[in-house]
């Protein structure tokens, strides 16, 4: 892997991750996670749900960012879904005023973006908003959405400084979800969708692991051993997630972990907490 991508995956990247426990703090508070075996089980569950969703979103975002830097050719939009038979007529300016929460503009079908809407800067902004809406729909907990946007902002700040790109500019302005920014940053740093998926899947377990060391005083060597044991599962999730990069966004995976959502909501209202989420 290219050293730029290693920087992006490094937990020392100054992108605000240290203040988030990946849902572990409320699990510790609830008594669900108490030791390394229960931490490992928690991380496996997180990887299979949030991990897969964020990795697929990151891969899709990376594909879109790569597309945006290349000349657009008919029927060749690697990261983008295709609206069957739809023909867009809106100008980029019209498209830019369309928000993801509005009804789709003429020429698009729900959950897809057609070719015409993504050409031009305004159209690209809409495409990013639609992908961001896909992230919203896969993040039922408002607290987790806030956390994902806060981390997206922080990542955009450091990524723009190091690997400036038009896509990161748009996402920083939109305050997008973290996996979208991660995908765009991966593209800007020279990586592809599979790299973005790997970094996202890896990041979906390392934050919680580090929080476990801090909250429970777990043996860091034992926690690292547990992470090493998850390596094959991380890779498998990343490979599966990257497979969605060329498919319509509505088909992106959406497994959920309702207990994690409930924990996140409880945590946001807790009096005593060390981590933002």
């Amino acid at each position: 892997m290219h050293p730029s991508l290693l920087l992006l995956a490094d937990s020392r990247l100054p992108a605000g991750g240290h203040a988030h426990s990946g849902g572990l703090e409320p699990a510790v508070t609830a008594g669900t996670v108490t030791d390394i075996p229960s931490l490992t089980a928690f991380l496996r569950g997180r990887l299979a749900t949030t991990g897969l969703v964020t990795a697929a979103l990151a891969a899709a975002a990376c594909a879109l960012a790569v597309t945006a830097t290349e000349p657009v050719e008919e029927d060749r939009l690697p990261g983008l879904p295709r609206a069957g038979g739809a023909t867009g007529t809106g100008t980029p300016a019209e498209a830019a005023t369309h928000r993801a929460s509005d009804p789709p503009p003429s020429g698009t079908t729900t959950g897809t973006v057609n070719r015409a809407t993504v050409t031009g800067d305004g159209g690209l902004a809409v495409a990013w908003e639609v992908l961001d809406a896909e992230a919203d729909t896969r993040t039922p907990s408002p607290a987790q959405r806030r956390a994902a946007r806060a981390q997206g902002r922080s990542l955009a700040r450091v990524a723009l400084r190091t690997w400036p790109s038009a896509a990161l500019d748009v996402l920083a302005r939109q305050g997008a979800h973290h996996p979208l920014v991660l995908g765009a940053a991966t593209a800007a740093a020279g990586g592809g969708p599979r790299d973005a998926a790997s970094i996202a899947a890896y990041g979906s377990v390392t934050g919680g692991a580090s929080a476990g060391v801090r909250l429970l005083g777990l043996d860091p060597l034992g926690v690292n051993e547990a992470l090493g044991g998850l390596a094959a599962a991380i890779d498998a999730v990343a490979a599966e997630a990257a497979g969605y990069a060329g498919r319509p966004w509505a088909e992106l995976p959406a497994p959920s972990a309702p207990v994690l959502d409930l924990y996140a909501e409880a945590h946001a209202g807790a009096d005593l907490r060390l981590f933002e989420s």
């Binding site: 020392r12 990247l13 100054p14 992108a15 605000g16 991750g17 240290h18 203040a19 988030h20 426990s21 929080a211 801090r214 909250l215 907490r273 060390l274 981590f275 933002e276």
Partner: peptide, 13 residues
């Protein structure tokens, strides 16, 4: 909030 690392929040990240 500083995730149990107050120095990280003012220095490293």
């Amino acid at each position: 909030r500083t995730g149990a690392c107050p120095h990280t929040a003012i220095r490293d990240d």
